[in-house]
Structure formats: C-alpha cells, structure tokens
Design a protein around this nucleic acid. Structure first.
Lengths: 125, 125
DNA sequence: TTTATCTATTGACTTTTTGTCTATAGTGAG
DNA sequence: CTCACTATAGACAAAAAGTCAATAGATAAA
C-alpha cells in the first residue's frame, strides 16, 4: 500500500519539490562551496524565480541536507557584514547526488512518456 | 514573496504529485472514457506502481477533476458487479490538458538542465 | 436464503510538507 | 546610540497526500 512513486516514506507527499531543490543545491555545492545567498543566486540557473522565493525555504533545505550528512557547514572567514555559514558537500553527499540524478532521469523519462502518449492521441483528431 | 515554482496558490506545496497523476488521467480520458479501476490499470503505462498505490488517491484525483469541470461522470451501463462511475473528458479538460502538457515539458527541460550541469562538473574529476 | 466474497466508490482521520511571518545577531554608517 | 542592512533560524498555519475504514450492489457457495 505505501511507498508511492519515486522515493520518500512520509505521508503528505514524501519529498517532491524539495527534492528538486536539494538536488540543485547539491549540484551547486558539487561545483564549489557556498553559503545561503550565493546558493540562492546559483539557483537561477535551474529556473528558480528567486525573487519570488522566500529564502527560509533554502535554509531549511540546507539544514535538512546537513542533518542527513550530505553537506557540512562552518562559519566562514571574515566577510563584510555578518558571518556566513559556508556549506561543503561530503563524500556521502556526492554519492547520494549520483542516485538523485538517476531518479530525476527516471522522472524525466516518465514525463517524456506522457508527452509522447498525448502527442500520439492528438494526431488522431 | 509568493507564487513559487510551476503553479498552484495554496501553501502546503500547491499541486506537485497530484499534478502528474491528474495529467496522466486526462491523457487516458483523452484517449477513451474510463472508470476507477480501468484508469488505475492505465496508469501503469506511465510508471505508476499501482499495486503499491491506495486507490483512494485515484478517486480523489477524479473528484477534483470533476469539481474543476475537466471531466464529467455518469453511472455506467450494467456491468457485472456494482455500478461503475464512467468519466469523460470535457472540452475544458482538453484545453487544460494542453496547458498541463506544456508545463510538464517545461519541468522536463529543467530536469535536463540539471542533469547537464551535473554531467559537466562530473567530467572535471 | 443466509453468508461470504468480490468489485467499485466514498468519506474521515492524520501526518508531513511547505509557505509565511517574525526573531536573533553581527556589521557599518550617520 | 540608533538605524539600516545582511545572514540565518525558528515557529506557526494551511494544505496535500497517505491510511483506514464504511457503504453498497452482485454473484457464488453452503
């Protein structure tokens, strides 16, 4: 009965949007370490409209990633203004990212299948 | 601040998984009318593991589609066993489906962008 | 003809997720 | 010292998705 699509074990949805967000964050951190606002900026690459996004969501995602051991953080060196919490991806984060990319690939192919089915029927009218 | 990714206006997520499910249902109904269990069967085409899925979720989705005017239902002709509620897509359902497919296409391309970014960095190791 | 069983659908309850709003805290300017 | 700005954190409420029955007709079996 349980264990719906994709992954996730919780009830109300079990991952979903956060999954894509966290995957993007891991890809960004795979490239180079970063902190809240720098990552927020990097998200634009993946279609996030960050102007319309509450940054709390990003920090929540980062804390979840850290709790899961996929990233570690430390207070960064002096930067003009308040201290920044710098995030770095862990080896476990790297291998998890590989799995997540696989899952996204799977998801993309499911969407493709639906697109194809729709286009096929559309022709028949 | 509001109006996150994709669509939806509510708080807790605003569409997401249901969106893909309902899109699949509309594609199936675009092809031919159907009822609960026949649609459940059709979902297998799109990667749903229906054995592990509570059918309540499907009926909830169908009722939502009907409330939105995207499908209509009527009690079907005699079929061995209890009555079946037959669903048919409406013209509004057809045009909404076109939009939804567009949105899914967009989502697919976002995933592709992330896959590409990941593969690009991966090479550098 | 009761009883049991299977199919089809519906509704209530509950947990989890997610959006929003507010708070803390350091820094620099006036 | 006060004000404004940046960076992060936490609490709360609303909504979504998962689970668990309940209803109800029809057929088969005892």
């Amino acid at each position: 009965m349980p264990r719906g699509q994709g992954f996730g074990q919780g009830r109300g949805g079990g991952r979903r949007k956060m999954f894509f967000l966290e995957s993007c964050l891991l890809v960004l951190l795979h490239r180079e370490q970063g902190y809240g606002y720098s990552l927020m900026d990097g998200l634009k690459e993946y279609g996030f409209r960050t102007e319309e996004m509450d940054i709390s969501i990003l920090y929540r995602a980062l804390r979840e990633l850290e709790t899961a051991g996929l990233v570690v953080s430390s207070w960064g060196e002096d930067s003009l203004g308040p201290q920044r919490r710098m995030y770095t991806i862990t080896p476990q984060g790297e291998s998890t990212l590989t799995e997540w990319i696989q899952a996204l690939r799977q998801r993309r192919m499911e969407i493709e299948a639906l697109e194809a089915a729709y286009d096929a029927v559309k022709k028949n009218n």
